[in-house]
Amino acid sequence: MFKNFFPNKILSLSNNLLNSLLVYLILVMFLGLIYSLYISPPDYIQGDSVRIMYVHVPSSFISLACFGIIGIASILNLVFKIKFIPLMSKSLAPVGCTFTLISIVTGSLWGKPTWGTWWAWDARLTSMVILLLFYFGYIFVWKFVSSFNKANKISSIIAIIGLLNLPVIKYSVDWWNTLHQPSSITLTSAPTIHYSMLIPLIIMLAGMIIYLLIIFLMKYKTETIKFKMNKIKNKK
């Protein structure tokens, strides 16, 4: 499966694969929506506003994970100079950026009824905005720096610096007093979310990961074609 990610293989990526992924996406999302909007119970304090969690938490998770991958890939990229890595990390950026935006907007919509404010400059929210800025910077460099090698270098450095922001986001709620509540799901202890609310959360996360995969594959193919066309042009 993974060898499909290599540049020469991605070009033979058929629409069949994308279409079947799309079918899975629709099925999972349908189930996820029914669970998150109808089957799952309201929260004992927050009532039905807790349902925003089912889009907010998975998108936040994916936005962090995407940037984490881009950052680590950028380190490998600068050290080993393997050609397909920048094309891959470049292809992850738009979807990661979109999920960061979704996370911030849905978080704001959740904040109003629970905290009583749309926005607060606490450590968690501020570091999420910084993540969004890093995504913007990364994408803009690829867009506006015309030389591939130059854009590759600058964007990699941006991604590596941005990587340091990730632990800050993750632990901001533990390091400082914040308005944002601490994590409910951690690796070290049992989740503090009741299982009836954990189910829709996991289904929605699965759906968003399938979506991420679809966007990534399409974008990666686009970027590979662009890269090869450029090469052909330069050879002429």
Binding site: P41, P42, Q46, T117, Q181, S183, S196
Partner: peptide, 17 residues
């Protein structure tokens, strides 16, 4: 001048409470 509610990380249905 302003009051914000801070909630914790526990989520559960009312019946469980």
């Amino acid at each position: 001048e302003k009051i914000l509610a801070k909630h914790d990380e526990n989520y559960m249905p009312p019946e469980v409470t």
